[in-house]
Write a protein that binds this DNA or RNA. Sequence first.
DNA 1: GTTAGCTTGTGAATCAATTCACAAGCCCCG
DNA 2: CGGGGCTTGTGAATTGATTCACAAGCTAAC
Lengths: 212, 212
Amino acid sequence: MKRIADSTVRRLSIYLRFLEDSLGEGNRTISSEELARRGGTTSAQVRKDLSFFGSFGKRGLGYPVPELTTALRDILGLGREWRVLIVGAGKIGTALAQYGGFRERGFQVVAVYDTDPAKVGTRWDGLAVRDIAQLEPDIREHAPEIAVLTIPGDDAQAIAERVVSAGVRAILNFAPVQLQLAPHVTVRNVNMAMELEGLSYALTNREKSDDD
Amino acid sequence: MKRIADSTVRRLSIYLRFLEDSLGEGNRTISSEELARRGGTTSAQVRKDLSFFGSFGKRGLGYPVPELTTALRDILGLGREWRVLIVGAGKIGTALAQYGGFRERGFQVVAVYDTDPAKVGTRWDGLAVRDIAQLEPDIREHAPEIAVLTIPGDDAQAIAERVVSAGVRAILNFAPVQLQLAPHVTVRNVNMAMELEGLSYALTNREKSDDD
DNA sequence: GTTAGCTTGTGAATCAATTCACAAGCCCCG
DNA sequence: CGGGGCTTGTGAATTGATTCACAAGCTAAC
């Protein structure tokens, strides 16, 4: 299989979410046109994206909703539970740890870590905050697949290196730095300040794009 | 000025963050090579990105840190305060409202809204949760520029339409749906479930990319 | 003032993603 | 059972982003 662009994988997630809704409404089939409308793209894009992975539709009819849902869940690797650890029990880390939406989709938060002695040992929802010194032994024992970093930028590179050398190969990084890691580690960045700055840019530089 | 790609604007944010660090360390100049190293890109990319906006460097020497910092802040529209409203006082909305990093960078949270009567009227840090019925009158009175939506997917389109028709032209959307809005409205999406699914995909489909 | 050593700025070339356009295939109706 | 109306799947064309490669220009040293 040839390499799939990041942008394609993102769109598969979008299609899947809408398919799940559509399944709940009892629809049997769906066209690329409809998927495109709800996903903010074009029907050609939808068909191209899906064609990288196989041929799921019937000409003249569209895609069967239940089968395509299953296929996408499979492609995205959602047919199993993933164990997630969170480093940083600040505002964002706490919110994520308590957020129910992850577990629903198969991402189980198994531990939260912090350096602050005042936080270590406190619990929410049966999940205790652990001392960051426990990071390596815990990872070696429980082998979580994904680490979420909700820590200050200055600490992020060092912590990322620690979780990687203990065996984690996927990181969701909320710190506003670009992590430099071995190529076998997959990193996704979420940077809310950057998103707001993008909006600021758009609001500021908009005289000529009124016509599109 | 011709249209600038989203990916370019994102990188400018990254460069800016690193320049601010570098300024704090007292560095006078910085090369595209160094910016690229810290930004996870190439020096040619850095020079190309900056060249869209002007000619900031000196050949043989690099870019003057203070001047380039100012220029980037200017380009990104960060030379002013932006007023931000948050709709949805759930886990994520609450965390964002209390997060200090935004104010530091010029994004001031002016109000938080929710439908839940149990939440309306409660306060954190001097910021009261207001009833969502106040949305339109408040927007018309205070003219916030940016709306952050931290609400369930089912509600997001309707709320987005309400804030837009009241005058907001920039939205940061945390709901897992693609908003369909008039083209003069700028939308950025942050979708943590999608990011985790991207990691799941990468962990699942990785046999052949061990060699890069 | 001239040379050596860097580093920028930028057209040209390459690489990647999206859109076009249409043959192939399926369903339904009469 | 044949034709009309849709919709997929996919090469080809196009559009867009990144990388290459090098002339131009600056600094410092002598």
